[in-house]
Amino acid sequence: MTSVKFKLNGKDVAVELDPSMRLIDVLRDHFSLKGVKEGCGEGSCGACVVLMDGYSVNSCLLPLANVEGHEIVTIEGFKETKQFDVLQKAFAEVGGSQCGFCSPGMIIAAQSLLSHNPHPTEEEIRAHMSGNLCRCTGYQAIVQAVEIASKKGAGLW
């Protein structure tokens, strides 16, 4: 078995696992990072998104081999950042999380958006986040949360 090396939540890791394994299984089962959720297993719902080199990717579609040499950040790593704090306060303010199953993915997707476009329009938010499904909120609160975070966290992104 070959060893796959990558950076995970700020630490260098090397795993000896089947390189064709889905990244989501490696993260949940091998590293016990249970904040990464599986909602569909085919890249439709975004509950499993993680940051790869700062961009959101569906970890259910990514084979382990593809992360060799890259940097992966999950909600467990991201929740220690200032950006997370701004985002979570904004989500709390407007009710951007109901059942909470999609929430870690939503936060990661919002981070991916704001880090590349710190002041997105409503249309840009909806377009960028459209890979993440939510069945509870009707999305409006999440759009508002990203708008609030963009304002209150000005300078962070």
Partner: peptide, 13 residues
């Protein structure tokens, strides 16, 4: 504040 919000948004629920 929603009682279960912090653990859900942090992916800890």
């Amino acid at each position: 504040p929603k009682i279960d919000f912090p653990e859900k948004i942090r992916g800890e629920a």
